[in-house]
Write a protein that binds this DNA or RNA. Structure first.
Length: 287
DNA sequence: AACCGGCCCAACCGCGACTTC
DNA sequence: CGAAGTCGCGGTTGGGCCGGT
């Protein structure tokens, strides 16, 4: 059963990449595209582990990598996003075009963590125990198509959606040929290990003061996003922000945007693009 | 010039979730 | 359904660089 072993480490190059290796990898990806990292070294003729090739490509060779210093705007954005997301470097990087998770992680560890420790960033108005970290890793959203009408129908929405209400919502969605599929990635994060009902698990995670990424994605945080998306069937899905309860209080949002106009604009762009882009595995496949 | 220590960052490692057989 | 492979993520490491002594 299963497949061949991942990668035999004997005889493989390690450490810094040479220009020749870079060229081979670059050429191979240009011709065959990303992915299938395991077989890539053998096919491309590289004495490297597939994992190493992937990392080299993502962190260094990708054509859209932005080189140079992190700008002040980017720094502010990183700080804000880190406050919001925690050490979710890949998500933070996803909001900074051209920056890699590794780069941001390094920048944080070598600059910002130190800087913030010495000179704390002006705190948000949230109390420490209200500090909200979006546990994005807990849920992989496979496919979501939402109709705001269905959200309105949940009596418990916005207070504490229990599994029963969640099941009702799912049933409602199912009745109207609206699909919601989530996979539980970290059962322990839901405090309900071994529960195979992933949908209920997800919905159990909907609590005041601890919203999930799915909430964020399904809400219109900026209040101005007029994004429309088409699903697999080509139907246009139009989120209607006025019908979706907000997950950030007005005060939080005000504080969020008030620091600096540029930062706010940048972050606004970032979140807006987050909802609109097709990249990233945290967006529904249907989009 | 030589040594030392701190900094930076590319690369590695281990793990968990997911996928495939 | 379980075992094993794949992928992606976050934490950590280590080597090169640079400034200070």
């Amino acid at each position: 059963m299963g497949r061949n072993p991942c990668c035999v480490k004997e005889g493989l190059n390690r450490g810094a990449w040479t220009a020749r290796e870079d060229k081979i990898l670059k050429d191979y990806v240009a011709e065959h595209g990303e992915g299938r990292w395991r077989n890539l070294p053998r096919k491309a003729g590289l004495q490297r582990c597939g994992k190493s090739c992937r990392l080299r490509w993502l962190n260094y060779l990708r054509p859209d990598i932005k080189r140079g210093n992190i700008s002040r705007d980017e720094e502010e954005l990183i700080i804000r996003l880190h406050k919001l997301l925690g050490n979710r470097w890949s998500l933070i990087a996803g909001r900074l075009p051209g920056r890699t998770d590794n780069e941001i992680k390094n920048y944080w560890n070598t600059n910002l963590a130190k800087k913030l420790h010495q000179q704390p960033h002006p705190p948000l108005k949230m109390e420490p125990d209200e500090h909200v970290i979006i546990r994005t890793k807990a849920v992989r959203c496979c496919r979501v198509s939402l109709n705001p009408e269905n959200w309105k129908k949940s009596e418990n929405f916005g207070t504490n959606v229990d599994s029963k209400a969640g099941a009702s919502m799912l049933q409602d969605a199912e009745d109207k040929s609206i699909s919601m599929e989530f996979n539980n990635r970290t059962s322990s994060s839901f405090g309900d290990e071994g529960n195979n009902n992933n949908q209920s698990d997800l919905l159990l995670d909907f609590n005041v003061g601890e919203f999930s990424l799915s909430d964020l994605l399904n809400s219109d945080i900026c209040g101005t996003s007029s994004a429309t998306h088409s699903n697999n069937d080509g139907n246009i899905l139009t989120p209607n922000s006025s019908e979706i309860p907000p997950f950030f209080s007005d005060e939080m949002l005000q504080d969020f945007w008030s620091v600096d106009a540029n930062v706010a604009s940048n972050l606004h762009y970032s979140f807006t693009s987050l909802f609109e882009t097709t990249g990233g595995d945290w967006l529904p496949d249907a989009y």
